[in-house]
Simulated scan of single mutants.
Amino acid sequence: MAAVMEDAAENLLAVEKVDLRYGQSQILWGMNLAVRRGSCTCLMGRNGVGKTTLLRAVMGLAPTFGGSIRFHGQDLVRQPAHQRARIGIGYVPQGREIFPQLTVLENLQVGLGIREHGLSEIPERIYELFPILKQFLHRRGGDLSGGQQQQLAIGRALVLEPELLILDEPNEGIQPNIVREIGDIIIRLNREVGLTVLLVEQKLPFARRLGTDFVIMEKGRWVATGTMSELTDEVVKAHLAV
């Protein structure tokens, strides 16, 4: 299997030897993660191994000690969360975290101007990807279904025009037909537009359909990594089977 830090020049995002603790509980132990430019990297592992915590660390929402988090070679460890969005990292957290009292349009407008030389209007591409958002522009976010809220959360992240899109379990609590839609959109963004994606996903068929690369975590550490073709039944049985 490929080494995690195989080729630093290829990696858009590189996490090296990162530790993180909450109080007396250490969650990440010397964690490594590499996301190649243009890849769709699936971060996998059983519940409670630290996947969401790692994403929060990348976004500056959870404090780390030791190690480095590099984007385009620039260490982000001392950068605040808003600066990480400004330099091109879009984040769709678990649970979506849209603003329920704001309209769809107002939720999307939150992302305008965050990037340096940012957009002044919502790109029409957002509505091409998610036609339902254009239909419900003036509906409150909290009145949307779970699947529609997830589309809004992804659309809001895309307004930033990110180079890296991070999604934390985008299928959680979503009806199957919307899951398929969201998967199609992620594939389109990754393979046609060239957007680099880091995706936490528990459902193996979905991960295999979308992913080009995988990283598996256990107890706050990486234990396996490689291209998706290397995610064999033996690796699944050893690290993902419940």
Rank of each mutant, 00 (worst) to 15 (best):
N171T: 13
D143E: 15
L195Q: 09
V104Q: 04
I154S: 02
V92T: 01
Y22R: 13
D7G: 04
L55R: 00
V193D: 15
L198S: 02
D19A: 06
G142Y: 09
V236D: 10
P80A: 05
G38P: 04
N11V: 02
A238P: 05
V235I: 15
G173V: 06
G194N: 09
F130E: 03
T227S: 15
P93D: 09
L167M: 04
P205Q: 15
P170Q: 07
S68I: 07
Q74G: 05
V15Q: 08
L20Y: 08
N47C: 12
E161V: 08
Q150V: 04
I69M: 06
I154A: 04
V179L: 05
Q83M: 14
I178E: 03
K203L: 12
G147P: 01
Q151M: 15
M59F: 01
R125D: 09
L164V: 10
W29M: 06
G118R: 12
V197L: 02
R96K: 13
N171K: 00
M228P: 02
R78P: 05
A62F: 13
K219F: 11
L160S: 03
M1L: 08
T232I: 13
L76F: 10
I187G: 13
E6A: 13
E218C: 10
I132M: 14
Q148W: 06
A62C: 14
V236E: 15
R188S: 14
L160G: 01
V242M: 14
G147N: 05
L54S: 08
T196V: 02
I187D: 14
E234N: 13
T103G: 11
L129Y: 11
I69T: 02
E192Q: 15
G146F: 13
L133M: 13
G141L: 05
I166S: 00
E128P: 08
Q94G: 14
N11I: 03
R139T: 12
E169M: 13
L13M: 02
D75V: 01
R140T: 13
F136E: 11
A85Q: 05
A3P: 01
N190P: 01
L144C: 06
S120R: 12
G142L: 03
Q74D: 09
Q79C: 14
T103A: 10
W29V: 12
S120T: 12
R208D: 03
M44F: 06
A2P: 07
G73P: 03
E169W: 11
D19Y: 14
R56N: 15
G141H: 02
M1N: 03
A34C: 07
A14D: 02
L105F: 06
I178R: 12
A14F: 03
I216E: 00
H72E: 11
A153T: 01
V235T: 15
R21A: 15
E163A: 11
A85V: 12
K219W: 08
R21E: 12
G45T: 08
R191N: 12
S145C: 09
A34F: 00
G113W: 07
L13C: 01
G226W: 07
Q135P: 06
V58D: 00
E234R: 06
H117Y: 06
G173H: 11
Q148K: 00
N47K: 04
P80K: 12
G88R: 04
I182F: 11
V110S: 05
